[in-house]
Nucleic acid binder design. Sequence first.
DNA 1: TATTGTTATACTCTATAACTATA
DNA 2: TATAGTTATAGAGTATAACAATA
Lengths: 161, 161
Amino acid sequence: MTITARSAGGSVDATPHESEQGDTELAARLRLAVNRLHRRLRQQAVGGLTPSQSSALASVAKLGSPTLGALAASEAVQPPSMTRVIAALEEMGYLTRIVDPTDRRVARVAITEQGRTVLDLNRSAKNSYLAERLLQLPVDERESLGALTVLLERLAALDEP
Amino acid sequence: MTITARSAGGSVDATPHESEQGDTELAARLRLAVNRLHRRLRQQAVGGLTPSQSSALASVAKLGSPTLGALAASEAVQPPSMTRVIAALEEMGYLTRIVDPTDRRVARVAITEQGRTVLDLNRSAKNSYLAERLLQLPVDERESLGALTVLLERLAALDEP
DNA sequence: TATTGTTATACTCTATAACTATA
DNA sequence: TATAGTTATAGAGTATAACAATA
């Protein structure tokens, strides 16, 4: 996939100020954009899961049967916060706890059949805020978002300072 | 500027499942990425401003002297939420209230000299979470982020359903 | 004694409902 | 009566500190 910066016939109207910036200004703009988009997204509960819950559930599916601590680190929250998220997902039947046979202090979790179903529904939600907006974008910009998403995922996944 | 989706020598290890998705899956992945990145970012208060405050301050600077209602709509929050953000920014001396001469119900706000200084400091914060991470990216990916940030800004700015 | 997770508590951000001031 | 904003109150998400269980 190959894209260009402003390929939609000039519909991306960056001002000179925006397009001729340094890395720190790019960081500031990206921060604002992420914050604002997050505010839009948080108003939509997708498939009965809050953003924190669907994010954690997706991480569990990806990691297999992580410990609570590993999951908290992966989601960049503190253990007490993850305790609550897990409790909610467990009560809904979307994940189960597994007692670690070698160390009974650790709490491992794994996704259930129901949990996987919900996750799939979540991934294919055609009526979500973002899905509807992506359809309003020109095809080439939509494709470029695929590349951007990979970068965002990596930025969010990088370790702490 | 031209980029490719995985230009970092294969360091972007998207699975086949991730790279061969439809728009709805892209939406789901983008949603998760934005949520996670937001969680990373919210832990860093930049220049003494919370994310909500710096976002609102930037909007005021962009809009000129908006009414509280217009600012709330621009930031996708309800008027009571904006009342609090404005009160905090006003107390810090970063914006002032202007009585609308034609309608004394409306509360207009404008950025102060101090506010503009803080905003500039914010934009050039070299030690922010994102700024440091952007420096870890290959140059071509960093450049692509500049173009794609514009897309995120537009997604966040689109009107409600 | 160190580590893993939980409970208790508090703070930030945001929302809805009810209210005030002005039109 | 309608509109712009504020105050009162509540809920979601997360944090730190103190605790319990296990190593």
